[in-house]
Design a protein around this nucleic acid. Structure first.
Lengths: 233, 233
DNA sequence: AGTCACTTCCCCCGAAATAGCGAGGAAGCG
DNA sequence: CGCTTCCTCGCTATTTCGGGGGAAGTGACT
């Protein structure tokens, strides 16, 4: 396992990630192993051993917004065993049947991982077996699966194009103040009052932040500030 | 190490976390080990082996917004060795001197961890030794430190009061659509157009979402939707 | 069979935010 | 000592948003 993690640290392109995902699948002895991530700007990438037809269908149908695994992982920190999830609801059952038909497997374990700037990824192993066997497998491999998720994400972030230049993004202290209070629900007048400056001045900061962030309006600017981790509310 | 991680999984209060942080410090053989987290709503908590006077001073001075370790970790995924950071700038040097005076140590290694709803935590080990010794220590213990950070955060999230009941929060599909497009910078008119509904209808969704989220205005509602992971932009 | 949540549409009007100009002073960096 | 960035304040017009009323159809769950 350590050898695989060290190989992951050395990987230099997506093809290597793909190869390592297959190698890791064999190491764990499961049907599938998938690492899938969404950048802060919405692009999706992934590598793993799912049927390419299933991956295409997943993207095409925008299953990301239905998949209970994703929905659940997006709101929790703990890794999740698929059996714990709520699979009720018509669209969800349709999705589940579709997944089964594409050989995803009846058991699964997914680790959510979060990076800066709203980056979010999931690392999944799935398999076909009975509940008891699966439970034992998870208990024995939980720590290694968490580490694997971490190392996959670490490498994936290096591959994202607009990650390094993004570091240049910077808001001035006053701009941060403005965005922070706006994110807390203050009106412009309230923010200006809180910061003890005129509302006109405040507007300059908001405008300035908007331009820096390439945002269309204040709401957008606040949303981007949050997503990019520029403000700590 | 595994014994400590398993004890972490069983911990039931902050005092146990504190005890385990001391036990883990002894395991690693470092001067200090600290886990510090900021909830999505801005409260700060922590446990670890720093001098309480330093912790108090850190909070009082709002060093969170100056500390280059925090600032850097907030924008990256990789753990960071303090030596890699940029310690220039007057406020930063003042902070650094202040930290030294409180016995923090000249070497440090910090792992950032992110949870849902904008939760953010750092796990730090610090020590006083030469660069070479420290580098070797980090190389040997990197994986265990990452796992430790993960397990600390896993437990910390359980202690947060409004974390579990929050799962009840739910936006309707249309409300999610509205919040999503607003977060993308669309104006009300554009969102209404995109969803092919009248702007009046859209307003009903925004109002509805605002009330559910307890938000003061649209910007606040979008900010909360993002923080709580209710929308995936 | 009734309640409840969701979706869709309409009216009005005052308050708030946005967009386009402008300028001067303080602080930090090379 | 300039240069840049940041902070501060001003004006006006237009657009957007917020809050207050309504009403009606669908589906789900009880």
């Amino acid at each position: 396992m350590i050898a695989i993690l060290e190989a992951l640290e050395q990987a230099s392109d997506l093809a290597e990630l793909q190869a390592l995902s297959e190698r890791m699948r064999d190491y764990f002895g499961v049907d599938h192993l998938v690492y899938h991530w969404v950048s802060g700007t919405g692009e999706q990438y992934g590598c793993g051993t799912y049927d390419p037809a299933w991956v295409a269908r997943y993207l095409e149908k925008d299953y990301l917004r239905i998949d209970p695994v994703v929905q659940s992982c997006y709101q929790r920190f703990h890794p999740v065993d698929w059996k714990q999830l709520n699979w009720s609801g018509k669209p969800v059952r349709d999705f589940q049947r579709d997944a089964m038909d594409h050989g995803v497997g009846n058991q699964g374990f997914t680790v959510p991982v979060r990076g800066p700037s709203g980056q979010f990824a999931i690392f999944t192993v799935s398999h076909s077996c009975d509940d008891c066997t699966w439970h034992a497998f998870i208990e024995n491999n939980r720590r290694e699966l968490i580490l694997a998720a971490h190392y996959f994400n670490q490498k994936a972030l290096e591959f994202e194009p607009d990650r390094a230049p993004d570091a240049a993004m910077h808001l001035s202290p006053r701009e941060v103040d403005a965005m922070t209070f706006l994110a807390m629900g203050y009106s412009r007048a309230q923010v200006a009052d809180t910061l003890s400056i005129s509302e006109h001045t405040l507007r300059v900061y908001i405008e300035s932040a908007r331009h820096k962030l390439g945002a269309a309006n204040t709401t957008h600017a606040v949303a981007r500030s949050l997503q990019q981790g520029l403000i700590i509310v």
